[in-house]
């Protein structure tokens, strides 16, 4: 018992080490939140550009650029993307590592989100677009009022998966010196030579985060459910 208390004391209380954890949680949350946001915006935009090209034949070049982006991002490891952005592209800039992290994870997630939405659009009966066309609605209105809402309802579980994956993936931000949760745990355990509490705490925080996220997604799914007719 005394040993465990000692370990706990060394990990959290001595020299106010719990502050490292709070800092780590803060940065994990900041990076996760903004990269989810960026990923959603990018992904939806890219999926619409590609779908517009598919439906109308217009915007060939832009759509090809989007294809290449999705191909490259999905074909390389996230860690490598992070390192390239940090050590190569933003090497000489004074951009905060946090921003580089958000950019990396957001750009990375955007490619996956784009693919998820594409599957969503493609899964909708093409008769829905035809009906909309015969009612005089153009591409953007059809997308906005008919295709996108239906697709969103259908892909919501897949989107939830992607968001949870992204939150966990932010843990590699420590590689470029961002003190997120795992890095915080690492810093402390390297001082105490005791890995138990730091790692367990990190795990519990991630579990809590993903638990809350999946609850939120489930709630959204139920809200959207009337849209999915079968």
């Amino acid at each position: 018992m005394g040993e465990i208390w000692d370990s706990f004391y060394q990990t959290f209380i001595f020299e106010d080490r719990y502050l490292y954890f709070l800092e780590g949680i803060k940065f994990t949350l900041i990076i996760a939140f903004f990269s989810i946001l960026l990923g959603l915006i990018l992904g939806v935009f890219i999926s619409i550009v590609r779908d517009f090209h598919k439906q109308t034949g217009k915007w060939f070049l832009l759509s090809k650029i989007c294809d290449i982006y999705v191909y490259v991002i999905r074909g390389t490891p996230t860690l490598l993307q992070l390192m390239i952005l940090y050590y190569v592209i933003f090497k000489t800039s004074t951009l905060s590592p946090i921003i580089v992290g958000i950019l990396t994870f957001g750009i990375n997630s955007g490619a996956y989100v784009a693919e998820i939405f594409r599957a969503g659009y493609d899964g909708i009966d093409k008769g829905q677009r035809e009906a909309s066309k015969t009612l005089g609605l153009n591409y953007l209105k059809t997308m906005r009022y008919i295709i996108f809402p239906q697709a969103l309802a259908k892909i919501f579980p897949a989107l939830g998966n992607e968001i949870i994956t992204l939150v966990k993936e932010t843990s590699i931000a420590g590689y470029v010196g961002i003190v997120e949760l795992i890095k915080a745990a690492d810093i402390i355990s390297s001082r105490t030579y005791d890995y138990f509490f730091p790692l367990i705490i990190a795990a519990i925080v991630y579990l809590l985060l993903t638990f809350i996220l999946s609850k939120v997604m489930k709630y959204g799914e139920r809200k959207l459910n009337h849209v999915v007719s079968g």
């Binding site: 009966d125 008769g127 829905q128 035809e130 009906a131 909309s132 015969t134 009612l135 005089g136 609605l137 209105k141 009022y145 008919i146 809402p149 239906q150 309802a153 849209v227 999915v228 007719s229």
Partner: peptide
């Protein structure tokens, strides 16, 4: 929309209520 069409599989918009199905296009246009 002056050439209307009625489809074999109805193609009502699944995400909209009956009233919204009816009013969406005339209002947007």
């Amino acid at each position: 929309g002056k050439i209307g069409m009625v489809f074999q599989n109805y193609q009502l918009f699944d995400n909209l209520t009956v009233i919204d199905n009816l009013t969406l296009a005339p209002v947007l246009n």
